[in-house]
């Protein structure tokens, strides 16, 4: 499994070339990974943006990025990934069997009023997992603002290092994602099952958190108490 986070072997695919997608692409390139990135438009529409903001990443289509990458990060609007009309917008087949990182949040200002995405009893990542049968879904990178993510990368052991919390039902996939988080410059805090990621959602205790690993664990403990 470990080879999946070896920069020489693993390719990172990113769906979404906006604020978060380009920051994650930049971090992954800096860590030595090959990166493929896509929006919903033809690759030419994002080529210049990628060349300037994430130099070295390959601009391509979503299905190509999903097909060729080993780990795929979802950094598009949640409402686009899980559309109301049920039309498939994600390359579901290409994502089958792969580790897919869900960095998305329900954001009513972008996604509109979507009661189906805001139920108290289910996290949005569980809905994403249901929309991606056969993918090994891990929730991560959703809680930190993109500018904190951009500025926060630090080497392992740096006292100022910030942490990214993750959750997922596939333990081995969680471990791979934890390694990836570490190579991108953050401590990883594994919260356990996907459902535990509820605390990372908008309106909950860890949303927006730009904290170290110990502080994140404290907040989780207090939230559970």
């Amino acid at each position: 499994m470990h080879s999946l986070t070896d920069p020489k072997k693993a390719t990172i695919g990113i769906l979404g070339a906006g604020k978060v997608g380009t920051v994650l692409a930049r971090l992954a390139i800096a860590a030595g990974y090959p990166v493929l990135i896509a929006s919903s438009r033809p690759p030419a529409a994002i080529e210049l943006t990628i060349d300037v903001l994430a130099h070295g990443a390959g601009a391509t289509t979503a299905s190509d990025a999903a097909g060729r990458a080993d780990i795929v990060i979802l950094a598009l609007p949640l409402g686009k990934a899980v559309p109301l009309d049920g039309v498939e917008t994600l390359p579901v087949d290409q994502l089958r069997g792969k580790i897919v990182i869900d960095a998305m949040n329900y954001w009513w200002e972008v996604d509109g009023v979507r009661p189906d995405l805001t139920g108290d009893d289910v996290t949005t990542s569980e809905l994403v997992a249901a929309a991606l049968p056969g993918s090994r879904l891990v929730k991560a990178f959703n809680h930190m603002g993109y500018h904190d993510l951009d500025e926060g990368a630090r080497p392992t052991g740096d006292p100022d290092r910030k942490a990214i919390a993750l959750s997922g039902d596939d333990v081995a996939a969680n471990d791979v994602v934890a390694d990836l988080i570490d190579s991108l410059g953050f401590d990883a805090v594994d919260l356990g099952l996907l459902v535990e990621g509820a605390v990372l959602q908008p309106g909950r205790e860890l949303f927006g958190a730009n904290l170290g690993a110990a502080e994140i664990r404290d907040v989780v403990e207090q939230a559970a108490a």
Binding site: L48, V52, H147, D148, D150, E151
Partner: peptide, 14 residues
């Protein structure tokens, strides 16, 4: 409106 202004240098470049 948040974070260090240097972060926007790539946007100026873009």
């Amino acid at each position: 409106i948040g974070g260090s202004p240097e972060r926007f240098a790539p946007y100026a470049d873009l």
